[in-house]
Amino acid sequence: MAEHVILVVGPMGAGKTTAISALSDIDTIRTEAVNTERDVVDKATTTVALDYGEIELSPNEKIRLYGVPGQKRFDFMWSILKQRAVGMIVLVKNDAEDPVGDLVAFFDEFREIHERGGVVVGITHSDLAPRPTTYEYQQIVAERYPSALAPVFTVDPRSRDQLVVMLSVLAANVDSRAMFLAR
Protein backbone atom coordinates (compact mmCIF):
# COMPACT_ATOMS: atom_id res chain seq x y z
CA MET A 1 0.00 0.00 0.00
CA ALA A 2 1.50 3.34 -1.07
CA GLU A 3 0.58 6.23 1.14
CA HIS A 4 1.19 9.95 1.02
CA VAL A 5 0.88 11.68 4.38
CA ILE A 6 -0.10 15.30 4.07
CA LEU A 7 -0.52 17.58 7.06
CA VAL A 8 -2.92 20.47 7.30
CA VAL A 9 -1.40 22.97 9.72
CA GLY A 10 -2.11 26.50 10.87
CA PRO A 11 -3.42 28.49 13.81
CA MET A 12 -6.70 27.83 15.60
CA GLY A 13 -9.68 28.93 13.53
CA ALA A 14 -7.94 28.91 10.14
CA GLY A 15 -10.25 26.20 8.77
CA LYS A 16 -8.14 23.03 9.01
CA THR A 17 -10.92 20.73 10.23
CA THR A 18 -13.32 22.12 7.62
CA ALA A 19 -10.76 21.65 4.85
CA ILE A 20 -10.09 18.01 5.73
CA SER A 21 -13.83 17.30 5.82
CA ALA A 22 -14.23 18.89 2.40
CA LEU A 23 -11.49 16.73 0.86
CA SER A 24 -11.89 13.40 2.61
CA ASP A 25 -13.54 10.33 1.06
CA ILE A 26 -14.39 8.98 4.50
CA ASP A 27 -16.16 10.48 7.49
CA THR A 28 -13.34 12.35 9.14
CA ILE A 29 -12.04 11.39 12.54
CA ARG A 30 -12.14 14.44 14.76
CA THR A 31 -10.88 15.16 18.24
CA GLU A 32 -12.71 18.35 19.03
CA ALA A 33 -13.12 19.72 22.52
CA VAL A 34 -15.03 22.61 24.01
CA ASN A 35 -12.92 25.72 23.45
CA THR A 36 -12.28 27.68 26.63
CA GLU A 37 -10.19 30.27 24.78
CA ARG A 38 -13.09 32.18 23.29
CA ASP A 39 -11.16 35.36 23.98
CA VAL A 40 -8.49 34.19 21.51
CA VAL A 41 -10.69 32.67 18.80
CA ASP A 42 -14.44 32.83 19.08
CA LYS A 43 -15.40 29.30 18.07
CA ALA A 44 -17.21 26.68 20.08
CA THR A 45 -14.78 23.79 19.66
CA THR A 46 -11.12 23.21 18.91
CA THR A 47 -9.04 20.22 17.77
CA VAL A 48 -6.90 18.82 20.58
CA ALA A 49 -5.16 15.81 19.00
CA LEU A 50 -5.73 15.49 15.26
CA ASP A 51 -8.23 15.39 12.44
CA TYR A 52 -7.93 12.52 10.01
CA GLY A 53 -9.29 12.02 6.52
CA GLU A 54 -8.41 9.87 3.52
CA ILE A 55 -8.44 10.09 -0.24
CA GLU A 56 -8.21 6.73 -1.99
CA LEU A 57 -6.35 7.12 -5.27
CA SER A 58 -6.53 3.38 -6.01
CA PRO A 59 -7.03 0.21 -3.97
CA ASN A 60 -3.28 0.36 -3.32
CA GLU A 61 -2.68 4.05 -2.85
CA LYS A 62 -4.03 6.53 -0.32
CA ILE A 63 -3.53 10.10 0.70
CA ARG A 64 -3.74 10.39 4.47
CA LEU A 65 -4.70 13.87 5.60
CA TYR A 66 -3.87 14.84 9.15
CA GLY A 67 -4.96 18.10 10.68
CA VAL A 68 -2.89 19.22 13.63
CA PRO A 69 -4.04 21.29 16.61
CA GLY A 70 -3.31 24.95 16.04
CA GLN A 71 -2.11 25.85 19.49
CA LYS A 72 1.55 25.69 20.44
CA ARG A 73 0.73 23.81 23.63
CA PHE A 74 -0.07 20.77 21.44
CA ASP A 75 3.28 20.83 19.67
CA PHE A 76 4.01 17.27 20.79
CA MET A 77 1.32 16.25 18.28
CA TRP A 78 3.12 18.28 15.61
CA SER A 79 6.33 16.32 16.30
CA ILE A 80 4.52 13.01 16.06
CA LEU A 81 2.60 13.81 12.89
CA LYS A 82 5.34 15.47 10.88
CA GLN A 83 7.61 12.43 10.89
CA ARG A 84 5.98 10.69 7.92
CA ALA A 85 4.63 13.70 6.04
CA VAL A 86 5.62 14.29 2.40
CA GLY A 87 3.82 17.59 2.20
CA MET A 88 1.72 20.11 4.04
CA ILE A 89 -0.98 22.65 3.50
CA VAL A 90 -0.53 25.70 5.72
CA LEU A 91 -3.76 27.60 6.34
CA VAL A 92 -3.50 31.17 7.62
CA LYS A 93 -6.41 33.31 8.71
CA ASN A 94 -5.99 36.70 7.10
CA ASP A 95 -8.12 38.55 9.65
CA ALA A 96 -6.03 37.29 12.57
CA GLU A 97 -4.02 39.76 14.64
CA ASP A 98 -0.69 38.76 13.08
CA PRO A 99 -1.25 36.50 10.07
CA VAL A 100 2.30 36.94 8.76
CA GLY A 101 3.69 35.94 12.16
CA ASP A 102 1.41 32.88 12.11
CA LEU A 103 2.68 31.85 8.67
CA VAL A 104 6.31 32.29 9.65
CA ALA A 105 5.83 30.36 12.91
CA PHE A 106 4.31 27.34 11.15
CA PHE A 107 6.76 27.53 8.28
CA ASP A 108 9.64 27.46 10.77
CA GLU A 109 8.11 24.67 12.81
CA PHE A 110 7.46 22.42 9.80
CA ARG A 111 10.36 23.50 7.61
CA GLU A 112 11.69 19.95 7.26
CA ILE A 113 8.53 18.98 5.38
CA HIS A 114 9.14 21.68 2.84
CA GLU A 115 12.69 20.52 2.46
CA ARG A 116 11.71 16.95 1.72
CA GLY A 117 8.52 17.50 -0.16
CA GLY A 118 6.07 20.25 -0.77
CA VAL A 119 4.21 23.03 0.88
CA VAL A 120 1.21 25.05 -0.23
CA VAL A 121 -0.09 28.05 1.69
CA GLY A 122 -3.80 28.86 1.77
CA ILE A 123 -4.99 32.27 2.94
CA THR A 124 -8.47 32.05 4.46
CA HIS A 125 -10.86 34.88 5.35
CA SER A 126 -9.30 37.11 2.67
CA ASP A 127 -12.81 38.34 1.92
CA LEU A 128 -12.84 39.89 5.41
CA ALA A 129 -9.26 41.15 5.30
CA PRO A 130 -7.87 41.60 1.76
CA ARG A 131 -4.35 42.35 2.98
CA PRO A 132 -1.72 41.02 3.24
CA THR A 133 -2.14 39.85 -0.36
CA THR A 134 -0.87 36.54 -1.71
CA TYR A 135 1.89 38.52 -3.42
CA GLU A 136 2.98 40.06 -0.11
CA TYR A 137 3.04 36.64 1.56
CA GLN A 138 5.14 35.21 -1.26
CA GLN A 139 7.64 38.04 -0.89
CA ILE A 140 7.93 37.37 2.83
CA VAL A 141 8.46 33.64 2.27
CA ALA A 142 11.02 34.34 -0.49
CA GLU A 143 12.97 36.75 1.72
CA ARG A 144 12.97 34.44 4.72
CA TYR A 145 13.45 31.15 2.90
CA PRO A 146 15.29 31.90 -0.37
CA SER A 147 15.23 28.25 -1.44
CA ALA A 148 11.49 27.92 -0.91
CA LEU A 149 9.12 28.81 -3.71
CA ALA A 150 5.91 28.24 -1.83
CA PRO A 151 2.63 28.65 -3.69
CA VAL A 152 0.31 31.03 -1.80
CA PHE A 153 -3.36 30.91 -2.75
CA THR A 154 -6.50 32.44 -1.35
CA VAL A 155 -8.88 29.69 -0.29
CA ASP A 156 -12.29 29.15 1.20
CA PRO A 157 -11.79 26.01 3.32
CA ARG A 158 -15.37 24.96 2.54
CA SER A 159 -14.64 24.87 -1.18
CA ARG A 160 -13.63 21.41 -2.30
CA ASP A 161 -12.70 22.73 -5.75
CA GLN A 162 -10.23 25.24 -4.35
CA LEU A 163 -8.75 22.68 -1.98
CA VAL A 164 -8.34 20.23 -4.87
CA VAL A 165 -6.33 22.92 -6.69
CA MET A 166 -4.10 23.32 -3.64
CA LEU A 167 -3.62 19.59 -3.22
CA SER A 168 -2.94 19.19 -6.95
CA VAL A 169 -0.27 21.87 -6.85
CA LEU A 170 1.32 20.17 -3.87
CA ALA A 171 1.34 16.81 -5.70
CA ALA A 172 2.72 18.40 -8.89
CA ASN A 173 5.48 20.04 -6.86
CA VAL A 174 6.40 16.75 -5.18
CA ASP A 175 6.52 15.02 -8.58
CA SER A 176 8.44 17.83 -10.25
CA ARG A 177 11.02 18.01 -7.51
CA ALA A 178 11.52 14.24 -7.69
CA MET A 179 11.93 14.46 -11.47
CA PHE A 180 14.68 17.09 -11.17
CA LEU A 181 16.46 15.21 -8.37
CA ALA A 182 16.36 11.83 -10.16
CA ARG A 183 19.72 10.63 -11.40
Partner: peptide, 27 residues
Amino acid sequence: ALQRWPNLTEIPHSTEEIRMIATLANG
Protein backbone atom coordinates in the same frame (compact mmCIF):
# COMPACT_ATOMS: atom_id res chain seq x y z
CA ALA B 1 12.12 29.78 -14.06
CA LEU B 2 9.16 30.48 -11.83
CA GLN B 3 9.68 33.25 -9.28
CA ARG B 4 6.20 33.23 -7.76
CA TRP B 5 3.11 31.08 -8.11
CA PRO B 6 0.04 32.72 -9.61
CA ASN B 7 -3.03 32.50 -7.37
CA LEU B 8 -4.47 29.42 -9.06
CA THR B 9 -7.62 29.26 -6.92
CA GLU B 10 -8.67 32.51 -8.59
CA ILE B 11 -7.55 31.68 -12.13
CA PRO B 12 -9.11 29.25 -14.59
CA HIS B 13 -6.39 26.79 -15.52
CA SER B 14 -5.83 23.29 -16.88
CA THR B 15 -4.09 20.24 -15.45
CA GLU B 16 -1.39 20.71 -18.08
CA GLU B 17 -0.80 24.28 -16.92
CA ILE B 18 -0.33 23.19 -13.28
CA ARG B 19 2.19 20.61 -14.47
CA MET B 20 4.12 23.22 -16.44
CA ILE B 21 4.17 25.77 -13.62
CA ALA B 22 5.38 23.14 -11.12
CA THR B 23 8.13 22.17 -13.57
CA LEU B 24 9.25 25.80 -13.92
CA ALA B 25 9.39 25.97 -10.12
CA ASN B 26 12.35 23.59 -10.17
CA GLY B 27 14.59 24.77 -13.00
